[in-house]
Design a protein around this nucleic acid. Sequence first.
DNA 1: ATTGCATTAGACCGACTGGTCAACTATTCC
DNA 2: GGAATAGTTGACCAGTCGGTCTAATGCAAT
Lengths: 205, 205
Amino acid sequence: MGRVSDARQRLIDAAIDLIGRHGYAGTTVDSICDKARVNKGSFYHFFQSKDDLVVAALDRHWEDRKADLDRLFSPAVPPLQRLQNYFQNIYERQTQLKASTGQYAGCIYSSIGSECIEQSPAISRKVQEILSTYARYYESALRDAQAEGLVRIKDLPGKAKSLFAYMEGVLSQAKIQDDPTLLRDLGASAFEFLGLHLQRKLKAS
Amino acid sequence: MGRVSDARQRLIDAAIDLIGRHGYAGTTVDSICDKARVNKGSFYHFFQSKDDLVVAALDRHWEDRKADLDRLFSPAVPPLQRLQNYFQNIYERQTQLKASTGQYAGCIYSSIGSECIEQSPAISRKVQEILSTYARYYESALRDAQAEGLVRIKDLPGKAKSLFAYMEGVLSQAKIQDDPTLLRDLGASAFEFLGLHLQRKLKAS
DNA sequence: ATTGCATTAGACCGACTGGTCAACTATTCC
DNA sequence: GGAATAGTTGACCAGTCGGTCTAATGCAAT
């Protein structure tokens, strides 16, 4: 019953784009409405508040990203190959985003998270939830690699968190310094972090 | 001639604290004035704009931090020891900030930087300047370590940038996830990243 | 003591903030 | 075709934003 509309989706898409570029506080409800070609009243028909929209946008962004990760981290792929493909994917994603928006996007979860702690509990919780789910992909791949004797890691969950933090750091620095080299070498550096050298060990597996 | 005042300094201190917690856009000129017990008129007597204050605050923050770094990265200290002391210093700093403000502060340069690119060129430039100066400490220590045969690194500037990005990532994730473990293990993890194991190799140097 | 100037004070500005509201319109189901 | 319902519209709100302005104030050097 009633009419149907994709305004909700348009608002979410606009929010992801704008917040990715200008941050949470730097993005206004009006600017989101403008970009989505939606009136203020419609915004508050679909969302209770700005924070509500941001949480929905995070959910939606993660839904999309998760589909990629599920493919890249498929157990059908050898564990170290998963990581290599994944880091390659990050490089390609960021390169593409830079081409279309003019700058590296970094990680939207971390960007929003570091801005919103102490300001919006709802957003913080969502970001924390996404980031810890995200990091589990690392842990799983490393555990499989360990089981196959490809790596020797003492504190496996710790190493997974470290590697994840490294990836986040690279994304952040690439964005701030507008530097592609860190992103390009992300995979190779990550493998060194694991005590591996890309060419030799990967061929062996 | 005329009176003297420390209002300028109070404004900078207040800005560092507030921006560290709520970000650039999330910190208002009024809130800075309130915290510094300074009136709006005085603010604009000392600074041309909000951005002007932020740049001054970044300068001031870096001035203080630089003094610490100069001590920690003194050539009088063995190069790997410099890094160990430095990572320990980060852990202590963040722990202390968490105790006094209730949360890990992360890196104020990266936080502001990732928020202000595309919004404020002046602030972006300042952040980029500070971050690249900062990373030189890493490069210098690694070069000295290499010269003493303590590490074997092919792309030394690249490795320095990677290690720096790792540190930034750890700070960011520690802040968002409110997780002390990453910070505690930062030094040990960094040495693994360099292909070293803390206890053994450090004793050898 | 006076004068000159750095500083202080806070009312004020227009633009914009997140959010509300009531009237209106189109669609879908019966 | 007529309810019932989902979505649209844009004027409006109180509060806040970064920033301006003029008058007052007090210290420092003469």
